[in-house]
């Protein structure tokens, strides 16, 4: 077996072994907080396939993606503006650093007050948190674009809008993507937190509600679902990144 195949086999085998171990360890469990895995999985199937998809999963995903994509949009646009202007960057730095330092859950009470208990406050908090990694990485990426790349565009009289779109953005894309990836996991965390504070649906709400009503297998099934979602998001993100930044991986491999 080649080294690669071995690695792939191990990669699959380890989680299987871990799951099997938990299965057997918990099988005879009579500890209330650790129900047998078989019970949890059965609950998972009853709950999430597909009973509560419409009532909890979809609302959660809507909040997550709205918040996330607003953050990406604002972060990239702001990052370009700040990245291109050293003056603006300097002026904005203290404000950015301050806002970034605020632990976002602390803003939740304010958001609930102003935006209400609906989706808006949750989207706001998710977007607020996801903004900073995207913004700061975009600023760095744009400010760090090789001047020769930009000069080349100028020499050939490429209009500024085209230079931005076809030169600066692609050149900064690797860093922007790094920020977007960080933000994606933050989005999931903030989605759960915001749903735990004031909500009447959503996966976070469901987990907390299950715990409060001592429906422990349900609670665990929600936690497992969140883990799976995070895993799938990250895998999906990497897939997109691999496509969009294929040139980057190729050029890096060539340089080494």
């Amino acid at each position: 077996m080649s080294r690669r195949a071995t690695l792939a086999a191990v990669e699959i085998a380890v989680p299987v072994v871990v799951i099997a171990a938990i299965w057997f360890w918990s099988a005879g469990s009579d500890v209330y907080y650790y129900p047998p895995l078989s019970d949890v999985l059965k609950t998972f199937k009853d709950t999430w396939l597909f009973d509560r998809v419409g009532s909890d999963v979809i609302p959660s995903l809507i909040r997550l993606f709205f918040g996330y994509f607003i953050a990406v949009g604002v972060g990239v646009a702001g990052g370009i503006a700040l990245g291109m202007s050293p003056v603006l960057r300097r002026v904005a730095a203290p404000i950015v650093e301050f806002l970034r330092a605020i632990p976002a859950p602390a803003l939740l009470p304010f958001a609930l007050l102003v935006l209400g208990v609906g989706n808006d406050s949750k989207i706001f908090v998710i977007a607020f948190v996801c903004l900073w990694p995207v913004l700061l990485n975009a600023v760095d990426g744009v400010a760090g674009v090789d001047p020769t790349l930009v000069d080349t565009g100028r020499v050939y009289r490429i209009p500024a809008s085209d230079r931005l779109r076809y030169v600066v953005l692609p050149a900064a894309a690797p860093q922007i993507f790094a920020g977007m990836r960080t933000s994606l996991s933050l989005a999931l965390i903030l989605m759960v937190i915001s749903e735990m504070v004031a909500s009447s649906n959503g996966i976070g709400y469901f987990v907390l509600q299950s715990q409060r009503s001592f429906a422990i297998p349900e609670m665990w099934s929600g936690i497992i679902l969140l883990g799976l979602l995070g895993y799938v998001f990250n895998a999906g993100f990497l897939l997109v990144e691999r496509r969009v930044l294929a040139w980057y991986r190729g050029s890096r491999a060539g340089a080494e």
Partner: peptide, 8 residues
């Protein structure tokens, strides 16, 4: 050239 050609 490596900084003047667009690698993408």
């Amino acid at each position: 050239y490596s900084r003047s050609l667009y690698p993408w």
